[in-house]
């Protein structure tokens, strides 16, 4: 099994078609929506995680392209500078996915990258600038 994160860009004329239905039904991929901005008649954006066999993921991507949806690998992540972090917890006030949360025993800030949506709200919420966004290929 393989897991990848992608950002999909829907052209306006495609936002009303059951694309995700086919993705799951025809290619047997497990599909997790991390972030979605889709409105009828507008260009949409969907950040997803796909899990499936190597072959099914490959076929699902071909289908996506043929369907007229552009995609690129999701290539950003949030990094925390542990040396700068003072474990205050201000970032946990805005984190929508609980990726940043306080350990209620030690009151140390935990960061669970798997849950992170890279919404970047924590960057401006951090009073000591210990959180940054990292771009990678």
């Amino acid at each position: 099994m393989k897991k990848i994160k992608l950002i999909l860009y829907f052209p306006p004329e495609r936002t009303d078609k059951p694309f995700t239905y086919h993705l799951v039904k025809d290619y047997d991929v497990i599909f997790n929506i991390l972030q979605a901005e889709i409105q009828p008649g507008k260009r949409g954006r969907l950040t997803i995680e796909l899990e499936g066999t190597e072959e099914n993921i490959q076929r699902a991507l071909e289908f996506t392209r043929e369907y007229g949806i552009e995609y690129r690998p999701f290539n950003k992540n949030i990094v925390r500078n542990q040396g700068e972090c003072i474990d205050c917890g201000a970032c946990t006030a805005v984190c929508p996915s609980d990726a940043l949360h306080m350990n209620t025993e030690t009151w140390k800030l935990n960061f669970d990258e798997k849950k992170c949506l890279v919404c970047e709200l924590c960057i401006r919420a951090c009073p000591v600038k210990a959180i940054d966004v990292n771009m990678f290929e």
Partner: peptide, 13 residues
Amino acid sequence: VQTAPLSSLRRAR
């Protein structure tokens, strides 16, 4: 409603 601290209990300890 979720709650969040602003002062560091860890460093206070």
